[in-house]
Design a protein around this nucleic acid. Structure first.
Lengths: 252, 252
DNA sequence: CGTACTATTGAGCGCTCTCAAAACCAGTGG
DNA sequence: CCACTGGTTTTGAGAGCGCTCAATAGTACG
């Protein structure tokens, strides 16, 4: 195992001009001097506006991207003009990891609101990670985390009811916002109902009905894109109740 | 970008005692001498029998595993005794990648038939990949491929009908077997109907009915675990017909 | 203050699930 | 060789969740 100096979150923030990138996507294990080197290959972020594409499916893969501020959706455009939303990405999250293998982007990424996106040339990141074992380790962790998250999502789509899906989605947002020091109970949805429903494998109408129901049950206040979770335990209860292997509900 | 000598599949097979591992999971880009070094850290495979676990959820992560022969399912055991099947793994495929981040296995892996499984100590693989840029590159590709495959699966579970799911599953098996030089039209299912249904997010009865229907439609012969695809184009037609963004069927 | 878009609400339907039972298969022991 | 047993697979009947279709309401923008 490589030895690596574990330093605090804060010390990285101080050490790193481009702090959002390094602090958030590679939270620890990097020597401040190495952080500086990593920072050196990261291109200044350019501000993008709602509807702009970070990259498009089919483009040659050259960079990973890190969301600094704002939010991004990844999606695969379908032939007939529709699309499949693959994920929503908040500040600190990395996109483009699925394109390393084929060196071609297999999905598109579009910003949902004015956002700052960092560009990380992958070939330089690869060179650097060869020189800095702890950076290599962080890269493996990052990729592994993505795999782990995807399998969680598989479970959600394969086995969960519409209610559980939306609750999980909201709690995921809440949790990720909290990690970034933002309010976990009150936030603005940068994506439309349509995009949420597409992501969760449901119909728009189902999402709308669920929001209404959740409100009636006192779980949250929702007005258009504004959401305030009033009973987080109640929401968590919706997704934690044990399910039998093949059945949606336990009839004991 | 690292320079890497691209050598043929066959030359790796010759160079490498443990050829199944290196040839299949890292198909190209490795110098024969480096293949030898990689081979050096791979532990001899031990034969496992139906029902044996390769690793269990909760165990500390130390190794990646490569299926040499046989087949493996990965699954997350649920509290109530049920389980969620995450994937089926054929010879040449690597399992355990999702455990790198937390250094704990988050799923279990169980062999479905007598299988030979290689063990690759991850810390040594990490060290080696630091020394051999092309190995590092292959590792990134491997992890990226896994991410890409997972997102494909997300699409399957989120948007596809039962018919499309089973057709996709069978074609995936067919395709992967073909890549290994085995018959792509005729094979033995090492997993039960129950495991297939669990994996595809459907009920056992649905799978059974679909097998019957596919047979009636002349797409395949199926008897118990034996499957022979008689109309591969017909199967492919089932999954390729364009879907509108929100609808299951196009009503033009 | 229209126009276009997004979100909500209602009614009815269909796919897939659940429940139930029969058929099939492999292994065991009489 | 056959009955017995536990498991898996198949088949049938009915129900429900979430979808489709359709109409209304709310919002942003020129």
């Amino acid at each position: 195992m490589q030895e690596r100096k574990v330093i605090s979150f804060e010390s990285i923030r101080v050490a790193c001009k481009n702090c959002t990138l390094t602090a958030l996507c590679l939270p620890m294990g990097l020597d401040p001097a190495d952080v500086e080197r990593l920072d050196g290959i990261v291109k200044r972020s350019r501000p993008l506006h709602r509807g702009d594409d970070v990259f498009r499916a089919g483009e040659r893969f050259r960079n990973l991207y890190v969301v600094k501020t704002g939010s991004v959706k990844t999606y695969t455009p379908k032939d007939e003009g529709g699309e499949q939303v693959l994920g929503f990405h908040l500040p600190g999250e990395v996109i483009g990891l699925d394109a390393i293998e084929l060196e071609v982007h297999t999905c598109s990424a579009r910003v949902l609101e004015t956002s700052a996106i960092c560009e990380v040339p992958f070939s330089r990141l690869e060179e650097l990670s060869s020189l800095i074992p702890s950076l290599q380790h962080q890269m493996y962790r990052l990729l592994s985390k993505e795999i782990h998250q995807d399998t969680e999502m598989l479970l959600l789509l394969g086995k969960r009811s519409s209610e559980e899906r939306l609750a999980t989605f909201l709690l995921s947002l809440s949790h990720r916002l909290k990690k970034r020091g933002l309010s976990s109970s009150e936030f603005h949805l940068s994506m439309s109902r349509h995009e949420i429903s597409n992501y969760l494998g449901l119909a728009v109408e189902t999402i709308s009905r669920l929001f209404t129901r959740f409100h009636e049950e006192g779980l949250l206040d929702v007005r258009r894109k504004y959401v305030r979770i009033t009973d987080i335990d109640g929401l968590e209860a919706l997704i934690s109740h044990a399910n039998a292997p093949n059945t949606k509900r336990q009839y004991t």
